[in-house]
Design a protein around this nucleic acid. Structure first.
Lengths: 348, 348
DNA sequence: TTGTACGCGTTATCAT
DNA sequence: ATGATAACGCGTACAA
């Protein structure tokens, strides 16, 4: 029937020719099928021709011409497995971005030199319409920082407001202080803090919150020891073993995330300790399966989904040129204390 | 010092002019800084000029011209939270894709009509160089299927080989049979199968495997009841409550994923049942925190990372025009039985 | 309302 | 090794 298969996919010209109209009409029609800038008859001719030719607009060309890609670069943290809260943030962001027709490009997860270059190149290449940072560490390449790519950027989960990047975060320091204060009020005096990796933003903030609350309480005999961890369950287990070997144990442990807290509890219980009677444990993040370990993990829930939504929202507004009011540089969602079974007054 | 800020970022022309060379030389140099098709002197002039002007190549233009974007579309399942195994697959794929300079575009997670259109449009628009499907359901839009977008496509985790899409999977049916056979050999006769959502690929396969093994054993008095679940922990808990209310309980439950198994165990234990003495429970997937619930969950570990790597590898080869040998249409990685504490001979 | 024509920034071809 | 120049496919200002 038809002639031999064309080596190239059809273009607008082909559609225009087939429909007997001008390319501009085709463009107008396809860009907005509901447009009234084109006559009903012409439109139907065009639509039919496009249908028959199996035509789709070449998005690469359109994006190039329009100087927009509909792509948002998500800068991911170099951690594996991906932190659950980060997933929540992504999900939240996706919800609002999808609604506006945007899709997410994910910075490669592995963080080698070359991979960082890839990410930075993409941003400097002007491909993404916006950047949402969901990572404490920013890809750099030969002194080029993501932040100077001239692309609207917002940070979620990590506070980058000091660099001029609007940030949507949770108030780690406050919620960490609140946790310590609760435990103090319950009668705890000997604390351990199970840290995240050195330099991590949440680690720093949460530790500060805990230390400040304990120091600020001004209670005699109050002490805080710091145990080094790295967010992994394994490091939580290691901390547990260390604790088991001690004579004078803390009565309460605050872990910088739930994963470590769970590893810790596991080892402590295997070692014969009762939780919370012998040791109270509080985690951080509010991961979903904290409910299912024993005892159910008391923790601080971070509203990742909300943060993702708000971050995407902020980004969209930034992209549309809306200047950020000064009070919007740092938007903080409070963490929520989830009282479950792993923490109680000492000895209770 | 310099003149007023230019409204437009510098182009290759600007660099060429500043360096006193032709744009083609600039292109050659910047496309491959190591190229020997350009003299050392011209190269350095070009590099310096680019540096001074703060020039970056416009990737949108380059992609357009080159007919390649360096982007791989990852089709995600419409489930929340994201299934842990899917994350492993992504991680594996990322590992090999990043090495080759590709980045991942994620299909929006929400699966509304419009969002599907977005994804399909992207593919038909010719933006992604390849598509990796990590989902059982494919985005459709007005009869246009992702698979007909003319973009090289590979499926990971879900078997799409019947549609002609090379698929890298795990052999669900076999491993499910193997689980049932182990339990039979241990003496179990009354089974329950806790299903995934109706129509789900893994659900179908695993149920088939379990049924086949139990039917095939030909042992008198062997029975299998099916309980409907949907992969969520809540549905596992519901199943647990149902079981608690029964007089004649199964001695072994095979759950279609770990999340449900964990919810189930939680309720069963709250109801006073001992696991595995009263009821054995086996999950599916091998999620990392199965170790930390009580008792530690026996499960079938799916090698998601390997599958992701192999899938990306397959895709890359497909993209480079390599025809798939017939035996590569379906590549299966075996699931691994992880024997832990939640399953044992009945009564033991 | 419809059509013409130019430009977007790069890469690739072809001469030199 | 280098330079001139023609596409690439689409959007849009402008003319009709």
């Amino acid at each position: 029937m038809s002639d031999s298969a064309p080596s190239r996919p059809p273009t607008m010209r082909d559609v225009a020719k087939a429909a007997g109209v001008a390319v501009s009409s085709v463009s107008r029609t396809l860009a907005d099928p509901e447009t009234r800038k084109v006559g009903a008859e012409t439109r139907s001719k065009i639509l039919r021709a496009a249908e028959e030719l199996g035509y789709s607009v070449n998005l690469a060309a359109a994006n190039f011409r329009r100087r927009a890609s509909g792509l948002i670069l998500m800068v991911m943290p170099p951690r594996h497995p991906v932190i659950p809260v980060v997933l929540d943030v992504l999900h939240g962001a996706d919800t609002v971005l999808a609604e506006k027709g945007y899709r997410m490009v994910v910075s490669n997860l592995a963080k080698s030199q070359e991979v960082n270059k890839l990410t930075v190149d993409l941003a400097f290449g002007g491909v993404p319409d916006g950047i949402l940072v969901v990572s404490g560490s920013l890809p750099q390449d030969r002194g080029r920082s993501l932040l100077r790519a001239g692309v609207p950027t917002v940070s979620a989960l990590y506070d980058l407001s000091w660099t001029g990047i609007p940030s949507v975060v949770t108030d780690d320091r406050d919620s960490a202080s609140a946790v310590a204060q609760r435990l103090l009020a319950a009668g705890h005096r000997r604390f351990a803090y199970l840290s995240g990796p050195e330099g991590n933003y949440h680690e720093t903030e949460r530790f500060r919150g805990v230390s400040a609350a304990i120091a600020g309480a001004g209670l005699a005999g109050t002490e805080l020891v710091r145990i080094e961890g790295d967010f992994s369950a394994a490091s939580g287990e290691a901390a547990g073993r260390a604790l088991l070997g001690q004579a004078e144990r803390p009565t309460a442990v605050i872990a910088c995330n739930d994963t470590m807290a769970i590893g810790l509890m596991h080892v402590l219980r295997s070692g014969g300790l009762r939780i919370p009677q012998d040791v109270s444990v509080v985690g951080y993040d509010g991961i979903s399966w904290g409910r299912y370990v024993e005892p159910a993990l008391t923790t601080v829930e971070i509203p990742g989904f909300e943060i993702g939504k708000a971050g995407a929202d902020r980004l969209l507004r930034l992209m549309s040129g809306e200047a950020a009011p000064a009070d919007a540089m740092r938007q903080a969602f409070p963490g929520r204390y989830l009282e479950r079974a792993s923490a109680a007054p000492p000895g209770a």
